[in-house]
Amino acid sequence: MIIEMTHIRKSFEGLEVLKDISFAVDSGEVVSVIGPSGSGKSTLLRCATFLETIDGGEIRYMGQTAAHTGEGGRAQYVPHHELSRFRAYCGLVFQQFHLFPHYSVLKNLTDAPMQVQKKSREEAEETAMALLKKMGIEDKAKAYPYQLSGGQQQRVAIARALAMKPEILFFDEPTSALDPELTGEVLKAIRQLAEEKMTMVVVTHEMPFARAVSGRVIFMDGGVIVEQGDPKEVFDDPKEERTRQFLRVFEHA
C-alpha cells in the first residue's frame, strides 16, 4: 500500500468533517472520489498531504506511520524533520493551480527539486523538460503563468507536482476552475498518467472521466465513505440510496 488512512477523524470548531474514515490506495491504483459539496473530500486530501492535521486515526505511507492516535486519544505526528520525508511521498494538484507567478514555467518545475531535494540544475531541468513535453507544453518553458490559459496552467501544476517524483498524486477538483472547453486537455493528461500506472486519487465532478479512468470510485457524504467499488457498480448499480440520490441529481444537472 502507498497510503493507508484508518479511522481518520477531523473536526473544525466542533463541526465533525471526517468521521472515522478508512481508506487505502495501492501502487498503480487510480481512485476517484465523488460526493456533494461539504462532504469532506478536500479535507480528506488535505489530511493525506499534511496540510491539515488529523484529530484521530492513523496515516501510513509505504508502511511507515506518519501519525497515529496516541495516549489521550489525540493524533500524534512524527517529529517535524521526519514529516518532510512523508511529504515527499505525496503531491497535490489544487483546483486553483497555485503556480508561483514570479517564476517561469521551467522554474516552477525546477525550484523545489533543487531547493528541497538538492538536485543539480541539469538534472532538475532535464526532468522538467521531459514532464513539460509529456504535458504537451514544452514550448511554454520560458513563459510566466499569467501568459498561459487555465488548462495550460493546470498542466504546469501537474508537472510541478510530478517533478518531485511523488509515490502518489492527489488532485482536488483539477478541472473545476476551468472553462468547459479546457477541461478536456487536463483530463487527457491525467488519463495518460493513469496509463503509465501513476498512483492517483482524484476528487472530481466529472463522472464520465471517473468512470473511464479510475479503477475504484469512492462516494463520500457527510464525512463518511458511503460506498465504494468498481466504477461500473457504483455508477450503474449503486447499493446505497444516498449514492443513487447524488447521482440522480448529477444526471439532471
Binding site: 499534511f50 511529504r87 503531491g91 489544487f94 486553483q96 497555485h98 525550484d111 523545489a112 518531485m164
Partner: peptide, 19 residues
C-alpha cells in the same frame, strides 16, 4: 494557496517566505 503549494512541495518555512 501560495503557502500551501510550497508546503506540499516540501519547502521549509524560511524557504517559503524568502523564495
Amino acid at each position: 494557496g501560495q503557502y500551501e503549494a510550497a508546503e506540499v512541495l516540501g519547502y521549509t518555512r524560511a524557504q517559503t517566505f524568502l523564495r
